[in-house]
Simulated assay, not measured.
Amino acid sequence: MRSLSTANVEFCLDVFKELNSNNIGDNIFFSSLSLLYALSMVLLGARGETAEQLEKVLHFSHTVDSLKPGFKDSPKCSQAGRIHSEFGVLFSQINQPDSNCTLSIANRLYGTKTMAFHQQYLSCSEKWYQARLQTVDFEQSTEETRKTINAWVENKTNGKVANLFGKGTIDPSSIMVLVNAIYFKGQWQNKFQERETVKSPFQLSEGKNVTVDMMYQIGTFKLAFVKEPQMQVLELPYVNNKLSMIILLPVGTANLKQIEKQLNSGTFHEWTSSSNMVEREVEVHLPRFKLEIKYELNSLLKSLGVTDLFNQVKADLSGMSSTKGLYLSKAIHKSYLDVSEEGTEAAAATGDSIAVKSLPMRAQFKANHPFLFFIRHTHTNTILFCGKLASP
């Protein structure tokens, strides 16, 4: 499983850097796990150069034996290679039903009904990815298909991701469309009390301020101080400690750009490692924020190196269908996050905890300027989400 979590971190940071350079000064939020998952589903049916490009971008090329060429001739899904079965295991671990946490991933490939898809691809993608390719009529019923896709996504994400495809955004000549939406809502292990929330300034990167609802609590949390670049790393666990939010906050003279510049899988691991993080009493100031961001993945993936997949002439998806000319016409990713006092919209307030105010050794963590955040599955060390709050 380690190979998959390493690939996940590397892919996550690649995507973050690409989005960051194309959306300067904007908030960023996406689910690296959900993207990795959707693209692996495509990889299952990709062959040749198309498969190699995907493996490289997903950082699967160093997970030996990830894909066996014999798969398409074999009736057994187990021949697809270890990476796909690992995904199945990982997913069942992360997706365990939990009343305190909602994680809904809507992943589906929609293919034109004019193509015949291999039964084996359909059954193996269902086995490993709980996702079956749906055939639709893009050509004759474009608008109806768009509504069908949107309704399915809305249903899978508790109504939070609505109207994924706007009117006129699906082309009647589409061959295959990848839909990838995710919704997360978790309750904090230590809730913030609503009465402690105050209006407070948040400094934007260009020296301007906006007023935000700043949540506040004193609690015992894991915190690290990094000297170069200067930052604080705080871990806020969600209920049951299965998931936690990790925040990288520049302090002192450092700014977010310096952290972004030095961010890679090695430094991320070092900054957030348990040997660095010490449990201590912390005064936490964190803004309440909601993020809902949609990305067209075609250009993002092309700039990372996945080019053939979107090219009708070059795409090799012969593991999905023998019909020539199968390629990915469009790929969309949308994710939704709500960070509030309870961590979720509806939670009963619990008894007040009385904090002793006289401890001089308490650390201050004041997120009143832009920061990076990650939501991570503790047990498998998998990053589910990655984001940057530039402006709440």
Rank of each mutant, 00 (worst) to 15 (best):
K208L: 05
Q189N: 04
K222F: 03
G166I: 10
G207A: 04
A162I: 12
S78R: 13
L384I: 10
N276E: 13
Y110A: 11
T307C: 10
E52V: 14
L39K: 01
N95S: 15
A7Y: 12
S74C: 05
L304V: 01
T148L: 09
V239D: 13
R47P: 00
V313S: 02
S74D: 13
I149R: 11
T102Y: 06
K147D: 09
F373C: 09
S340V: 14
F310M: 03
M1V: 03
V282A: 08
P172F: 03
H84S: 12
P250Y: 08
T197R: 11
V239R: 05
F91W: 12
G387N: 03
G186Q: 11
S299T: 15
L35P: 02
S174A: 14
K334C: 00
P250N: 14
R108T: 05
F365L: 07
N107I: 04
N180R: 05
L133H: 00
L35T: 09
E292V: 03
L35C: 12
V89D: 13
Y129E: 00
S32Y: 06
S66Y: 06
R82Y: 11
K72V: 06
E342G: 06
I375E: 01
F91N: 15
S303Q: 13
A349G: 13
I149M: 08
K199A: 12
S74G: 00
V57M: 00
I293F: 08
T253Q: 03
E18K: 03
L133M: 14
L4N: 02
T380K: 06
F16T: 07
E18M: 09
F192A: 07
P201H: 11
K227D: 15
P172H: 10
E228S: 12
S174R: 14
G166H: 02
G266H: 10
Q96V: 14
L54T: 02
P69I: 08
L122P: 00
C101I: 08
E228C: 10
L304Q: 07
Q258A: 13
Q203K: 13
H333K: 04
L39Y: 08
K257V: 04
T344N: 10
T267M: 03
N368Y: 00
Y327T: 02
L223R: 06
E345Q: 11
Q79T: 15
L103I: 15
N368A: 12
L256N: 05
S275M: 09
Y238W: 08
N22S: 12
V356C: 07
A46S: 14
L39S: 14
F117T: 04
S244F: 10
S99M: 01
V282S: 01
T169R: 09
G387F: 06
F11N: 07
T253I: 07
Q364A: 10
L44D: 10
Y295W: 07
S329D: 08
T50H: 02
I354N: 14
